[in-house]
């Protein structure tokens, strides 16, 4: 079992930390993981992306040319990564702000209105967790329990009161699929 994922969007949408949570959950599930970010000025408002590989075998390259799943959260990322989804793979996108829709027919396409859902939850910060919920519904690479354990371990104690809200956001994301 090996899953190769790209997550891309605007800096601040939380794609890097979503990838990190995913990778950390993989670690808890005793899987091999790599997390390779784009770094630098992209982190400060431009387009950010992260490649996450989760596998039950050692991972060779952390840099890839095609992906099982692409999570794209802006037009630029959709344009860039739609062609790079493997046939039969998945493309998850948020229609918010998207004017040119994906066109491929050999992949599974999932619009996830996460921005709307985040506004309903009145929590912009829960955005990436809604996306993560959707991703895990489509492809349960790691268990939700491991995601929550990972969050608990990586979040400082003072933020632990946010754990239920994160769990709720994941559930909300799963409902959107």
């Amino acid at each position: 079992m090996k899953t190769e994922i790209i997550a891309a969007g605007f800096g601040g949408q939380g794609v890097l930390s979503m990838g990190k949570i995913l990778a950390y959950a993989g670690l808890i599930d005793d899987l091999e993981v790599t997390w390779m970010p784009s770094y630098g000025p992209e982190q400060r408002g431009g387009t950010a992306n992260v490649t996450v590989v989760i596998s039950d075998k050692p991972i060779s390259s952390p840099v890839l040319d095609s992906y099982d799943t692409a999570v794209v959260l802006n037009q630029q990322s959709l344009d860039k990564f739609e062609p790079k989804v493997k046939p039969g793979g998945s493309l998850i996108y948020d229609p918010y702000g998207i004017h040119r829709l994906p066109t491929r027919t050999d992949i599974n396409i999932y619009p996830v209105a996460a921005m709307d859902a985040a506004m309903e939850l009145k929590s912009a910060k829960s955005y990436n967790m809604i996306i993560l919920g959707a991703l895990l519904k489509i492809n349960p690479i790691v268990s939700i329990e491991s995601v929550m354990t990972g969050l608990k371990k990586t979040l400082p104690e003072r933020h632990h009161h946010l754990l239920p809200a994160n769990r709720e956001a994941i559930s909300r994301g799963m409902e959107l699929i």
């Binding site: 990190k20 993981v33 790599t34 997390w35 390779m36 970010p37 770094y39 952390p62 840099v63």
Partner: peptide
């Protein structure tokens, strides 16, 4: 290099 410096792994 920047790849192995920036990437996360176990």
């Amino acid at each position: 290099d920047g790849i192995v410096g920036q990437m996360m792994e176990k």
